[in-house]
């Protein structure tokens, strides 16, 4: 069933299992106790950061499959992507597995896009179990999008810190305490922000657009949700999002949470918080799903945001087009409020 750009899933696909791996810096934050594996060394025993990112992603996927009590042959498809050129981490991680691979690119909103598509595949009956996964690595992203690590340059106060981490979840047709009830497809919004250091401001309009359309299509209000989670807007972007929503008379100030804003313990060196595909992936697949499994959060709207730029486009002075996909999750656990 479909209304506007929102898909309503009849069979309510479940999140069967989930896993997250995060870096040492992320370990100190809120997700440290919830992530399955935390790295002591950002190299993860590999020779390059790209290989480390790939290993994290593949580790998160195999862990998620294992935790769901499944084997490779039970998985019908894996939907994954990452931030590197030609999504090499995801496709290289897919070498390790026997199941089919669908590569996605939606920058930092890859987690919600892969969950949305997995749920659609499962709901339509074409698949029983799908893996949705993504990850990012600070060092590899820094090198691709910004400067060499050792270059002595100052970080502007608007900038964010790419999260080192990977998250994966298995979307299944039956087992699991978290149901995916509906999802809203994002539209690309570009309000003309050109500053690549100010991703939050660029992405906030896309998030506001998607969240408002979700409210409209599902007939819900912000108060109906225990949490409205955005991906990596950061402190500045969250503030802009709240303002934009407030302008259209939606008040999300009490239940809005931004993964980028909460992932680090102290927002000082990271300025506006975390960013990157791994940001929302790690927070969702550790902290949020664990709490939902326990029934602490009943209804959650997850809208990860992505900035669809490249170094070429920003070098040519283009503004930053952004996207946000929303997924509505409901906890079926007993003891839910």
């Amino acid at each position: 069933m479909k209304k506007g750009n929102t898909l309503f899933f009849k069979t309510r696909p479940r999140v069967r299992s989930y896993a997250a791996i995060c870096g040492s810096k992320e370990k100190e934050g809120v997700i440290g106790n919830y992530a399955d594996i935390t790295l002591s060394d950002d190299m993860y025993g590999e020779s390059t950061y790209e290989k480390a990112e790939c290993k994290m992603l593949s580790g998160a996927i195999s862990l998620a499959v294992e935790k769901g009590g499944l084997t490779d042959c039970d998985i019908d498809a894996m939907l994954s992507g990452d931030l590197l050129n030609q999504i090499i981490s995801a496709s290289f991680a897919a070498r390790d597995f026997e199941f089919p691979f669908l590569g996605l690119y939606s920058a930092c909103s890859t987690m919600s896009e892969s969950m949305l598509l997995s749920a659609a595949l499962v709901d339509s009956g074409f698949a029983c179990n799908c893996v949705a996964a993504t990850g990012s690595h600070f060092a590899s992203a820094e090198r691709q999008y910004r400067y060499p690590l050792e270059l002595g340059c100052t970080r502007p106060p608007q900038s964010q810190w790419t999260v080192t981490g990977a998250g994966a979840c298995v979307i299944s047709d039956a087992v699991g305490k978290i149901a995916i009830t509906s999802a809203t497809l994002g539209r690309v919004r570009d309000w003309g922000v050109t500053d690549v250091n100010n991703m939050g401001a660029a992405m906030a309009p896309a998030a506001a657009d998607t969240i408002m359309r979700h409210f409209k299509d599902t007939g819900t209000k912000p108060e109906d949700y225990d949490m409205i989670i955005t991906g990596d807007l950061g402190a500045l972007g969250s503030r802009i999002l709240k303002d934009l929503m407030w302008e259209k008379s939606y008040d999300i100030s009490s239940n809005h949470v931004d993964c980028g804003e909460i992932i680090y313990k102290v927002i000082e060196d990271e300025f506006q918080g975390g960013s990157g595909a791994g940001c929302s992936a790690v927070v969702m697949n550790s902290y949020v799903f664990t709490k939902m499994n326990a029934g602490l959060y009943k209804k959650v709207l997850f809208a990860a945001t992505g900035a669809l730029l490249s170094t070429v486009s920003s070098g040519q002075g283009e503004s930053i087009p952004c996207i946000s996909h929303a997924v509505e999750l409901e906890s079926l656990a007993a003891g839910a409020q």
Partner: peptide, 9 residues
Amino acid sequence: LFHSKTKRN
């Protein structure tokens, strides 16, 4: 002689 080191802050 050196490898690039990741940053923590």
